[in-house]
């Protein structure tokens, strides 16, 4: 299993080194690679539809079910694709308990309508720290909890000097009352990171924004 996992990981990393930024410590993840796959698959589908239309303008004289005889082959192909897709992505589960990397910093995140409160753990109920500073390279475990309704703890990165004008979403986790959810991340790029609520939590949901800093030692 170990070998399979590593091979799978190598495969994805070879295709796009940043495809799984989480825990890999690379904050350069973007969805370009998936976007290209989606666009290619859509293009192939459209070509398929055009071919289908063409075929109906050139009907067979005798009904031979030319394509239908390959149905079993087709099923085998898609089953293999789906198994490969599942197996190769399993090593990158977004759950801290699925990984052996231990965090060296824990941040408590409390959410309530319509604000965020970050504080160094363990200190539930401790005062919020504005623009909390985290040292570059730390493996950070965020413990998230809500004081009222369900929120979504989403973290975006944006570098003003980068060519990416839209920033990028690095990770997220749901924040639910009476439960403590968690997410782990290693920051490797200094700068400001933005928190945005990613679960509809009421009329002020769109204002639920905060930030923190990653600073080099």
């Amino acid at each position: 299993m170990f070998i399979v996992q590593n091979s799978a990981r190598d495969l994805w990393v070879a295709l796009d080194p940043n495809v799984f930024a989480i825990l890999a410590g690379e904050a350069g993840y973007n969805l370009t690679y998936l976007e290209v796959i989606f666009a290619a698959a859509t293009a192939i589908t459209i070509v398929g539809f055009v071919a289908l239309y063409w075929s109906t303008k050139h009907p067979e004289e005798k009904d031979t079910h030319a394509l239908a005889k390959y149905e079993a082959h087709w099923v085998i192909v898609i089953v293999i694709i789906f198994i490969l897709f599942s197996v190769t992505t399993l090593p990158y589960l977004p759950y801290p308990y699925a990984h052996s990397v231990k965090p060296n910093v824990v941040i408590d995140v409390q959410a309530q309508q319509f604000s965020w409160c970050l504080s160094p753990a363990p200190a539930w109920g401790s005062p919020c720290v504005q623009n909390i500073n985290i040292t570059l390279g730390d493996v950070v475990l965020f413990y998230v909890r809500s004081l009222d309704v369900t929120h979504g703890f989403g973290v975006y990165q944006w570098n003003p000097n980068s060519s990416n004008a839209y920033g990028q979403i690095l990770f997220q986790v749901q924040v639910m009352p009476n439960y403590t959810n968690s997410v782990e991340y290693q920051f490797t790029t200094p700068g400001t990171y933005y928190i945005r609520c990613l679960e509809f939590c009421g009329y002020g949901h769109y204002t639920m924004i905060s930030s923190f800093n990653i600073t080099a030692v």
Binding site: L52, T56, A66, A68, Y70, W74
Partner: peptide, 29 residues
């Protein structure tokens, strides 16, 4: 996750069956 993949397989079968039927038929558009 596995169910989501399986529904993809079921959809794949359906779509292929329908495509194969239409393929080179005298289809009424």
């Amino acid at each position: 996750q596995n169910m989501s993949m399986t529904i993809g397989i079921a959809s794949g079968i359906s779509v292929f069956t329908i495509f194969a039927l239409i393929w080179r038929s005298r289809y009424e558009w």
